[in-house]
Design a protein around this nucleic acid. Structure first.
Lengths: 195, 195
DNA sequence: TCCATTTACCGACTGATAGTCGGTATTTAT
DNA sequence: ATAAATACCGACTATCAGTCGGTAAATGGA
């Protein structure tokens, strides 16, 4: 005898939870809506009552994973004082989280392909994107790096990090290890330091 | 009365040509094998006689686009003498080519997603990826930038460039213009310069 | 030149799966 | 209590990647 809102939220959460597991394990295209419905113990119709398309389900999962990840990274980078050191630390955490398992599958591999780059960027910007510009602004303010337009530089750095994360997620045999990239990234940040 | 080799090559080329147009226009998942077959004026069976899967067709298209793109960029960057200036120039050309139309769709959007990271990296390394490492090695050799591991830095820079290209392709309203990014990238390269 | 073999191509068919739709159960508003 | 609205059900449809038995064309040996 739950209220409609409770029923609704419970079912929705159950669907997203099942979808998160299945998308993470098998990837977007190998996951079927029937699997997701079965995993959530509801009929397919219920899934389509809550989400218009398979992509919409994925988007909900993607947002949830992003939120969890950001919370983790915030905790990590808050421990540092120097602005550039905080960026480097957060980056390393990002590598660690995305380099293996479901998180990497959802965020790095399927994310851009399923949502499209624009939408991916939008969501990414909502959760992560703000971090880099803010950190850069702080670093410029503190005189640690030279003043220059923030937005383009932030994007370049974000792209660099993402690329490295993808490379790391492919395994240490193919690319270099997360440590190698973390070091390279730190050296890139150091290069920006005002001498 | 063509030879088998001629028939084969003609049909294959026709398929790849049609597929290139259709993949470029609609994206991978919206393009159907029936469309491709129709576009190439052959039966679906012929397509499957030449390519095992839809992904295989895409791979052939991807390689062709890569080859064309690399040829363009080579021409552009060869005009510069300073190693870093050559990188910057090539980068700007990359922006121009990928920021709009079919090339961007195939290379930036569908490419990595469809082929999978490992395979994408292989092809990329064969055609394009080698450029950055080589340019960096030359710059280090010339003493323009400090000696350090090449591969990780090259990946970071490639990621930065790709991200910028995507941002530009999303339109100037969303990101900044290509010029803004080109400038930011040049400033990043300059930061690497030995002072 | 003729036949056997191999290779290129054809297109109706199959299986899988995203999405639909008419119907039922449960809650809410009057 | 009853009507309306909302949540959920699951058989059904449409679409499309991939298959398969068959035909046409080239090739190599006699």
């Amino acid at each position: 005898m739950a209220t409609q809102a409770e029923r609704r939220e419970k079912t929705r959460a159950s669907i997203v939870k099942a979808a998160r597991r299945i998308f993470g394990e098998r990837g977007f295209s190998a996951a079927t809506m029937d699997d997701i419905a079965a995993g959530a113990r509801v009929a397919k119709g219920a899934v389509y009552h809550h989400f218009a398309t398979k992509e919409a389900v994925f988007e909900a999962v993607f947002e949830q994973v992003s939120i969890d990840l950001v919370a983790d990274l915030d905790r990590i980078s808050r421990a540092e004082n120097d602005p550039l050191a905080a960026m480097a630390a957060g980056t390393q955490g990002y590598f660690a989280a995305c380099s293996k398992g479901p998180t990497g599958q959802i965020i790095l591999r399927d994310g851009p392909a399923v949502l499209g780059w624009e939408r991916w960027r939008e969501i990414d910007a909502k959760h992560f994107g703000g971090k880099f510009p803010r950190a850069l602004a702080a670093a410029m303010e503190a005189g640690v790096i030279a003043k220059q337009p923030i937005e383009p530089l932030a994007r370049l750095l974000l792209g660099a990090v993402t690329e490295a994360a993808v490379a790391v997620s492919a395994g240490p045999d193919i690319g270099k290890t997360g440590t190698d990239y973390a070091r390279a990234f730190r050296s890139l940040l150091d290069a920006l330091r005002v001498k």
